[in-house]
Design a protein around this nucleic acid. Structure first.
Lengths: 223, 223
DNA sequence: AAATTGTCTATTGTCGACAATCGACAATAA
DNA sequence: TTATTGTCGATTGTCGACAATAGACAATTT
């Protein structure tokens, strides 16, 4: 891994658009006009096009030929599907790597769960998301299947924006911690089926809730 | 769905490169030079770049910043992983949609298996691949999860090129038919676990064999 | 001789301009 | 009124040219 990362304008644009979405400066469904973004950043349209291509590949934006790029506005159905997919794959990944976790790893995971709960109680949203990321990264980090790992990362990025938008309305601090604790406990049990089932329900539950929330938001928007 | 598909130069290039790979005019690891391809097709580099971006997203080519694009040369490990991933997802998809298959569907599937076996016996490789595609499309066509369906399609395209290259060396005509018949039989049983397991082993078996074959080819090439 | 440095070439990264296409609106006809 | 057609502006698709960079090879130094 190189110490310095080589960066191009394209990478800058990708980050710019993604952050705009996270920060609420852009909204799902909105059209991303190449010329406009290029002007904003003081560059030409070429790297902007490259960046939009990449974001399209990531599923963050959708692309209509001869019309343009739009920020993805996943339907409740699609949101649910994406969470289900993540549950399926992450469950499988964790199941297949369950015996690679040392007791030190498990302690670390329990610690992260506590931190998460405390951060949630403090109302420190950013910290909750950050610790949550660390937690899931640790869980999946041992995954041996490169293809599934890659797809999982794509799903993570795609769902991240949804999660950041909605999670504070979904769970109490206690629930946040408890939900993640269940995963660690299942992992400790070493029971293959229990692990898969726990992870799947972890995500299908979140997915269902967020889908409903997205639906109400969409209806509100339509009115 | 529009009756006529709107096509751009980019789409043409994507198809050109993909076919070149299937037809053996290009080989894994080879660098794809934008200028060269543009000259070959009599167009400018811009649409070629777009096409290479898309192929990169599909995993057909790998991209090194400031250096260029190369036809993917998946390691045996990666090949095995891709097949495992496909087995996991396709097994799940078939398992969740098992009750959507009518007896007419099942008859059709059995018929396809027979056609496949006969084509294999005639040595009609193209027909075997075509029937095989129809078969798998029918199996997964009822999939309800949009995200998994999308990823499955990507995996299919990615593995297609490997499969076309190696399958005649892997199985006898009898085996070809028998392997697929097992899937239909498991589907008829309606047993969720059996279906998942059958599909998973179907792919992990192929994956393992192709990975080994790719390894020997690679060694031969290195010598 | 081996390692380092400098130069050169091929290839990608970026640019601004032009052409092609889409969507919206107005004008027209039934 | 309603449906069809024509025009127009905005946006993407494509182009050729230039700048920047990586990799190869030669020159230089130790």
């Amino acid at each position: 891994m190189p110490a310095i990362k080589k960066t191009t304008y394209k990478d800058h644009v990708v980050e710019h658009v993604y952050q705009s979405l996270l920060d609420g400066r852009c909204h799902p469904g909105e059209q991303l006009k190449e010329g406009l973004i290029a002007a904003e950043l003081g560059i030409s349209r070429a790297p902007v096009r490259e960046a939009l291509k990449e974001l399209t590949a990531r599923g963050i934006v959708v692309y209509r030929p001869q019309v343009g790029c739009f920020l993805a506005q996943p339907s409740p159905q699609e949101i649910g599907d994406a969470y289900t997919a993540r549950g399926l794959i992450e469950g499988y990944a964790l199941m297949t790597t369950r015996h690679l976790f040392s007791s030190a790893d498990l302690s670390r995971l329990h610690l992260l769960v506590e931190e998460m709960g405390q951060a949630a109680q403090r109302g420190d949203r950013k910290e909750v998301v950050e610790v949550g990321d660390t937690f899931h990264t640790m869980l999946v980090g041992k995954a041996i299947n490169s293809q599934l790992a890659e797809y999982l990362e794509r799903l993570r990025l795609k769902l991240h924006v949804l999660f950041c938008r909605y999670w504070p309305e979904l769970y109490t601090p206690e629930e946040i911690a408890e939900r993640h604790r269940r995963i660690v406990v299942s992992l400790q049990s070493g029971d293959a089926r229990l692990i898969e089932e726990t992870v799947r329900s972890h995500y299908s539950e979140s997915g269902g809730k967020i889908a409903v929330l997205a639906l109400t938001v969409r209806e509100r928007h339509a009115a």
